[in-house]
Design a binder for these strands. Structure first.
Lengths: 236, 236
DNA sequence: ATGGAACTAAACTGTCCAGTACAGTTCCGA
DNA sequence: TCGGAACTGTACTGGACAGTTTAGTTCCAT
């Protein structure tokens, strides 16, 4: 508990990995088992013996690969964080040269809320928040890589759209934050307090559509966005 | 860990308490010390011995007042949760009969963000989220009492304002959620990952003002809310 | 002032855990 | 095939912790 702040120990897997010797295999097995257990039981609630057993590995091997429990934990969370950042990141790029901004924003909003309500991802988020006091650097890293990077990606897209006259905004970063949280606030903050609760797909769609309407009302170039029709334009 | 789900054990202090015998005093001392320690170190990170010592009380007395550690924990958090809900709740009532809606919303937004960035409150939030898997009822109670109750209070206010023609909305609950999260998302979610970081007062004001502008653009009765001060939209 | 309830201090039980030690086994590249 | 690196199993150290027990002390209402 009084140990020095462990620095991250990344998984270190290059894009190619054809041979993968015994050592690398064990390393991955430990990370995987530790991820599963830490996510389910928290940091203090998980013992190294448990991790070793679950990974099919001796405790000694765990300590060969990771200095101590804290390092193992940070390695696990950093690996999960990279899993988190990527999908958001890629979705956003499709907005690059949109013809029908409203439709494309709606699509993006739905993809965002789908990604963000993934159960495993929610549990990582809970875990990082819960351990933020014990591992402050982990909290910062999570915010930086999962939240801020996504926002900046969207910011760049919005800046381009503003230059094309499709959006009116003078602070694209703030606008990006607004968009993301209009979509995610309600489901994400509800999910934080209700583990193992099914996500309400219809509710997500409704919130995503309303988020786009609000966003375009505030930042759209066309003064009159279609009056709120609640449900998507079709059906009814 | 396999015990039955403990039901809440509220502090049970009536509005009057002039005598407060020894027993009640000890009870309060335990709750107070436990609150401090649980909030700082988490559930598993805090021992009952520690709580007893910090409360200036023998361990036996702790167990006289609370069945076990789980019950003590839920009692502590429930007490904190009621602290959380109240201030929000009261701020909102002032919106009842507004003459200058924009100014009053701005005021409300600033008060909300000030309340929500209170360090102790943030720590309760982190704690409940972090232990949500271990204590699901706690998560539900927090959401119900801190989030949902506030939203419903604002919903009632918005419904009144819509009837007076000051707002245009067909789902006041959704509008209330939107307003609250426009104001709180950014500071709250940043704070979740960065304990012991100073809150940026200027940033809060800026976000609060922008939140009101966006809200009125989406739900305001007057079609053109004053364009955000700053420069005119274009720049290139 | 006194009897009982509440409290204290300390020791104890049974369990769990991080991290180490060590002797023996398996893997794998040269 | 052979030698070293990596791994296994088990046991151990030293400590922590939830919850109980006991014997004695303090408080306070009657």
């Amino acid at each position: 508990m009084a140990g020095p702040p462990p620095t991250a120990e990344e998984p270190r897997e290059g894009p190619e990995r054809p041979p993968e010797g015994r050592s690398a295999r064990k390393h991955r097995a430990i990370l995987s088992a530790a991820g599963e257990l830490f996510l389910r039981q928290g940091y203090l609630g998980t013992s190294v013996d448990e991790i070793a057993a679950s990974a099919g590995v001796s405790k000694q091997t765990v300590y060969k690969h990771f200095d101590d429990k804290q390092h193992l934990f940070t390695a696990v969370v950093f690996a999960s964080i990279d899993h988190v950042g990527r999908p958001f990141y890629e979705e956003i790029h499709r907005l690059e040269d949109s013809d029908d901004l409203e439709a494309d924003l709606r699509e993006l909003a739905k993809r965002l809320s789908a990604v963000a309500t993934d159960q495993r991802l929610l549990q990582v988020r809970r875990l990082v928040i819960g351990e933020a006091a014990r591992f402050p650097e982990l909290g910062h890293a999570y915010y930086e890589r999962a939240v801020d990077r996504t926002t900046r990606s969207l910011e760049a897209r919005f800046r381009g759209l503003a230059e094309r006259g499709l959006l009116r905004l003078d602070d694209p970063y703030l606008a990006a934050q607004t968009f993301i949280w209009l979509v995610l606030s309600v489901p994400l903050n509800r999910a934080m307090f209700s583990p193992e609760t099914e996500t309400d797909a219809a509710g997500l769609r409704r919130i995503a559509d309303e988020a786009v309407r609000i966003f375009l009302a505030a930042y759209g170039a066309t003064p009159a966005s279609p009056r709120r029709g609640a449900r998507p334009p079709a059906q009814a």
